[in-house]
């Protein structure tokens, strides 16, 4: 993966596959470090499944949605001296609190740190393909934030699907403007 935003897209697709209704993507960075958290309320995984995730050769037909995505994200974090952590509560354990939380920490100053890339495209792609899922996006850079909540947008849009071309364009511009704004501050 050439951009971490592509890893984020890929990991969030696992949440989609897990039947999540809500997916929160949070990035928090300062000059030295970057933390990426992807959290969902999908079906979750058992302890055994989570342990096998970092093995790139663990792909059976039933877990095909996992595949190489997690190992690649883990590699991207660890090659900067960072880490990847996955916490998951399977639906079999808790009917109410199930879901998965993926946390990756990066050392931005490391020579092998992958650039973040185009996060706006990642969000537009996720929303385009999954208009019925609610996404909460929050990117904080040195205390200044870019934010998008599809749940809030949905209230304004009424019956118009989030995958509508004009809506997607609006999301793209809205996020791009916020990024320009925090760069200026």
């Amino acid at each position: 993966m050439k951009e971490l935003s592509l890893n984020i897209l890929d990991i969030a697709m696992n949440s989609v596959g897990a039947g999540a209704k809500n997916i929160a993507i949070a990035l928090d960075e300062d000059d030295d470090s970057l933390r990426i958290v992807i959290e969902d309320d999908g079906c979750g995984m058992t302890k055994e499944q989570v342990e096998k995730l970092s093995d790139p050769f663990y792909t059976t037909r039933t877990t095909r949605k996992v595949g190489l995505g997690v190992p690649l994200f883990k590699l991207a974090a660890e090659q900067t001296g960072g880490s990847l952590d996955i916490r998951s509560v399977p639906v079999s354990e808790s009917e109410k609190e199930h879901g998965t939380k993926v946390t990756a920490v990066f050392n931005k100053k490391h020579i092998d740190h992958t650039p973040l890339g185009d996060l706006v495209s990642t969000m537009v792609t996720l929303i385009q393909g999954n208009p019925d899922i609610d996404f909460l996006f929050l990117h904080t850079v040195n205390g200044k934030s870019v934010r998008l909540s599809t749940a809030e947008m949905r209230k304004e849009l009424g019956d118009v699907p989030l995958s509508n071309g004009e809506v997607l364009n609006w999301i793209k511009e809205y996020l791009t403007e916020q990024y320009k704004e925090i760069e200026r501050l």
Partner: peptide, 23 residues
């Protein structure tokens, strides 16, 4: 196709180009 293989090979800009051009 938007699995890991597709994303790594460049499917994201392809998808967004289709959405924009059709729109």
């Amino acid at each position: 196709g938007m699995a890991t293989c597709g994303i790594a090979a460049g499917a994201r800009p392809v998808l967004n180009t289709f959405v924009e051009e059709v729109s």
